[in-house]
């Protein structure tokens, strides 16, 4: 197992506007679960990844960084348990998690 921690600037200074969380995906071979939570991070975003495949930190950073930027996220914490998913599957799950969080918005 390898644990990776990332922090992205997001939109600095943005106040936390809501709370809530969503969980999508299931940990399995080539699959992953993503929990997305709103948290007061001063507008930043954080991600922690536990993955069964070593040595892909740069790829994770790029995929998650792209997701945060593309969606214009702030005050989001992502927690990921990974069973060796490909970047395309990871991106799919991230978008699915964001959609799931939207369904629960107050």
């Amino acid at each position: 197992m390898e644990r990776l921690e990332f922090r992205f600037a997001g939109r600095p200074g943005t106040p936390l506007s809501a709370d809530g969380e969503a969980l999508v995906g299931v940990v399995g071979s080539g699959n992953l679960e993503v929990m997305i939570e709103r948290a007061d991070l001063g507008g930043a975003c954080e991600a922690s990844v536990d993955t069964s495949i070593h040595g892909f930190g740069d790829t994770w950073q790029q995929v998650i960084g792209d997701f945060v930027e593309r969606r214009g996220l702030a005050n989001i914490r992502l927690s990921i348990n990974d069973g060796g998913a490909t970047p395309a599957v990871v991106m799919l799950r991230l978008d699915q998690a964001w959609a799931g969080l939207g369904e629960k918005a107050p």
Binding site: M1, V27, S52, N81
Partner: peptide
């Protein structure tokens, strides 16, 4: 996050 205390010791991923 009440995850398995045993799986990490075996190098296996947990589920939340």
């Amino acid at each position: 996050r009440r995850t398995s205390p045993h799986l990490p010791a075996l190098g296996m991923p947990v589920a939340f």
